[in-house]
Design a protein around this nucleic acid. Structure first.
Length: 180
DNA sequence: GTTGAGCGTT
């Protein structure tokens, strides 16, 4: 039925244009600074985020680049997609997600459900916690769409673990812009 | 300089 059909707003394969670009297939050694250098040629950025593995601290090989203006992100998408950067052919597309997940607090923040109201046991903690957390997480994750208008400001200043001023110049400047 | 195809919770 039509009423159940989701309004078309892009998909994984064909994301709608927006100011956030996903950059994939990166070399593990490409830094946020490198990306800023490349992508700021298409317009002012508000942020760059390489995604790191939480355990190892290594880049997971993809990143997100935030533009101030959607026209610039369009330009960047069209020109930087397929560009070679640090020896890798990178893929650039509009991001599906808009920002990093907000860490979950680990406690249930919502309204009590019938299940928990009726449980006569020791109310709070222990075994129920796990169940509550997953319940909470699902609802929380559904709220992503609300962040489309979120005024994302890039503030993080901690150094990327793989950036070093001792990196060899030869490797770090080896991207080749496309010409049309 | 794990060789991949990956949409984010440092």
């Amino acid at each position: 039925p039509m009423s159940n059909r989701r309004r078309h707003t892009g998909s994984r394969a064909n994301p709608d244009p927006n100011t956030c670009l996903g950059v994939f297939g990166l070399s593990l050694y490409t830094t946020e600074r490198d990306l800023r250098e490349v992508f700021s040629r298409y317009g002012p950025l508000t942020g760059v985020n390489v995604v790191y593995d939480q355990r190892t601290g290594r880049s997971r090989g993809f990143a997100f680049v935030y533009f101030e203006r959607i026209d610039d992100s369009k330009e960047a998408m069209e020109h930087a997609n397929g560009m070679e950067l640090d020896g890798r052919r990178i893929r650039v597309d509009y991001s599906i997600t808009k920002r990093a997940h907000t860490p979950t607090p680990g406690i249930y923040m919502g309204r009590p459900t019938q299940f928990f109201l009726n449980s006569s046991g020791g109310g709070g903690g222990g075994g129920a916690g796990r169940r509550r957390d997953s319940y909470y997480d699902r609802g929380y994750d559904r709220g992503y769409d609300r962040y489309e208008e979120y005024d994302y400001r890039y503030r993080r200043r901690s150094p990327s673990p793989y950036y070093s001023r001792y990196r060899s110049r030869s490797r770090s400047r080896s991207y080749s812009p496309r010409r049309y």
